[in-house]
Design a protein around this nucleic acid. Structure first.
Length: 285
DNA sequence: GTCCACTCTCGTATACTGTA
DNA sequence: TACAGTATACGAGAGTGGAC
């Protein structure tokens, strides 16, 4: 497991020795938490097939460039479930008065259960593939850089490894999160609780849209709205704009986002507008 | 009995391509 | 431009078996 983006003065083994180990907490009834920065910007591929084309996003002072390797591709929005698990663990520990750490240990089973996946061989293989994508995906962003001119570069996971006893019996996995992500999660103002049924959303665009809606719409009674071309830019999707718009219309018809109601508004000569507003929990089926 | 790792099969979403 | 078909990859779910 190598991490080419790390400076030579702090190699992974040295870094591991310097960090306390945080054993993951039992996750029953633990609320999923997501980092607001990850919800608002295109950090992940929305496609299930491997994407190697970089994500380039600029808006005002915000710059984001996400690159993957030919071997693994860019981390997907399903891979981000692991970061949601990590964020949830860190916030839960902090709130319970337990000292969390960027160096975390858990069993794959615990992670798979928390993020609502199966526990089949392929699920385990996918989880490991997700770790590889998160580790090999590099991000350069100006977010949280005060000048807006300098970029912070990191991978979603600095390093990870499988643990086993002397007989080869699996003992779980250990991973180290990047400082940029960890600092954002420790700042309570930069984390939002998300609906646990998020993990049941099967579409990439569907998942991305929920996170965006949750981030921007929050619980404002009047909701929020975006024009579709702007949403397309903000998604980082490789789909054609017309296909992306068609997918959004399908999601509006489906109304599958937990806690929100979507609608499309059209005005002559203007781009389509996607509007969303919170729905009272009791009104949902 | 429970936890965890694993097998197998089927369904679904995205991106791409072709056609009207 | 809009729509439909296809390839590919990945998620879902039921079930099995070993260790404790």
């Amino acid at each position: 497991m190598s991490s080419p983006s790390l400076p030579l003065r702090q190699r992974p083994t040295q870094q591991r020795e310097q960090l306390d180990l945080f054993r993951a907490l039992p996750a029953e009834d633990m609320a999923p938490r997501d980092a607001q920065d990850l919800m608002a910007y295109p950090f992940f591929s929305l496609a299930k097939s491997r994407r190697t084309a970089p994500i380039d996003f600029r808006s005002g002072k915000i710059t984001i460039r996400v690159e993957g390797t030919q071997e693994h591709g860019i981390a997907t929005i399903w891979d981000a479930d692991i970061l949601i698990w990590a964020a949830s663990q860190i916030v839960e520990a902090r709130d319970a008065g337990i000292q969390p750490s960027r160096r975390m240990q858990a069993t794959p089973y615990e992670i798979l259960r928390f993020i609502g996946r199966g526990t089949s061989l392929r699920d385990y293989q996918r989880l490991k593939a997700a770790f590889d994508r998160l580790q090999s995906t590099t991000v350069a962003t100006s977010i949280r850089e005060t000048t807006g001119r300098r970029l912070h570069r990191f991978s979603w996971i600095n390093e990870w490894k499988e643990l086993a006893d002397a007989n080869g019996k699996p003992l779980g996995i250990e991973l180290i999160l990047p400082d940029w992500f960890y600092a954002g999660v420790l700042d309570a103002a930069l984390v939002l609780t998300i609906d646990p049924t998020y993990f049941r959303l099967t579409g990439g665009i569907e998942r991305w849209l929920y996170r965006l809606v949750r981030k921007h719409g929050g619980r404002q009674a009047n909701g929020w709205q975006f024009d579709v071309p702007y949403l397309y830019r903000k998604s980082g999707s490789l789909a054609q704009p017309r296909d992306f718009a068609r997918d959004l219309r399908a999601l509006v018809a489906k109304q599958s986002l937990p806690g929100y109601e979507l609608s499309i508004e059209r005005w002559p000569g203007e781009p389509e507008i996607l509007a969303f507003r919170p729905v009272p929990q009791t009104a949902r089926g």
